[in-house]
Design a protein around this nucleic acid. Structure first.
Lengths: 168, 168
DNA sequence: ATTTATGCAAATCCTTTGCAAATCT
DNA sequence: AGATTTGCAAAGGATTTGCATAAAT
């Protein structure tokens, strides 16, 4: 997978931080310490998170100084503008995930444990674009969340049902 | 289309209000004036709305007394439980739409005028269920919103670009 | 030096809750 | 009568804003 023409290689040419700095420069915005801390923490690992979780993980990272809540929110907004993060509303609050150097995917949301499970489907994208064409709607993206109960939680529920029956 | 076995005929056998009253009875809940007003206003026409808009439209309906905000929220919750309404988070606030006697559909959301445009696709449902099966995820529903710019807003944007050029 | 970003405190928005009075069954 | 529902006022949680200070260009 060292093909220079592979999408992955092109998209990941710059690190998230480099890509972000590039964006900031083109917009006349500034590369500050808080912003650097935030980007580093955000891309330390791939995971979904909200503003609170991000604040918390920055706060408890050893050596990294904390960042105020407004600054976190403001930085997240810029990161979305920059195309580094994707934002989605989930049960009241905003949840963010990587949108840079990470393959297109959608989510299943477990209504029992609140977990987000990623999956990929080329078909979705195809249908999405076809629908847009039919309605003369310029598609820029989509949000698909499949609701239900994940495998683990289904097992737990089955156990509970079993327990109940045992007691009768 | 007077086929007794058609889904449409079966699903729409009861009016929304009747269906709601039925639900309330089975749950030992009560059929009150505020609830009746809310259901009537909600199903007066098919449209997406939020709690505020509903409050407002009830308030300005002649002859219909206003309903308090908490009551509106509480009634909407029950209507969702009852399967009469579907709730979706959109840009911070909750938006509701008919889910009774109304065919399955998804939405395109125009980021310019904030309008929701409905569309239908059997494929989406098929893919959704297939994905669930693959991941041993029990699917209960989904939310699909295609983001972009609607036809009308695209025209407006083109006009503006044209104007700008004219001035040069 | 100038402009933008930060942090604090307070505000805002949407939604929910506690509780006494009103309304159903 | 007895239970649920309403409306009010107030609380709550997430996110945003005004403004003086700090940091970046």
């Amino acid at each position: 997978m060292t093909d220079d023409f592979s999408l992955g290689a092109v998209e990941t040419a710059l690190s998230p931080l480099e890509r972000f700095e590039e964006y900031l420069q083109t917009k006349g915005k500034r590369i500050t310490q808080p912003r650097r801390r935030i980007v580093e923490e955000v891309f330390r690992q791939h995971d979904h998170f909200d503003a609170d979780q991000l604040m918390a993980s920055i706060a408890k990272s050893p050596g990294i100084e904390k960042v105020s809540r407004p600054t976190v929110y403001r930085a997240l907004e810029v990161l979305v503008e920059a195309g580094l993060l994707r934002k989605m509303g989930l049960g009241g609050r905003a949840v963010y995930e990587h949108d840079y150097g990470y393959p297109q995917h959608d989510h299943m949301h477990c209504q029992a444990c609140n977990q987000l499970i990623e999956f990929h489907s080329d078909d979705i994208q195809r249908i999405r674009d076809a629908v847009g064409r039919q309605h003369q709607f310029r598609v820029t993206g989509h949000l698909l969340i499949i609701n239900g109960v994940c495998r683990d939680c289904m097992r737990k529920q089955q156990r509970q049902r079993g327990d109940r029956l045992d007691r009768i």
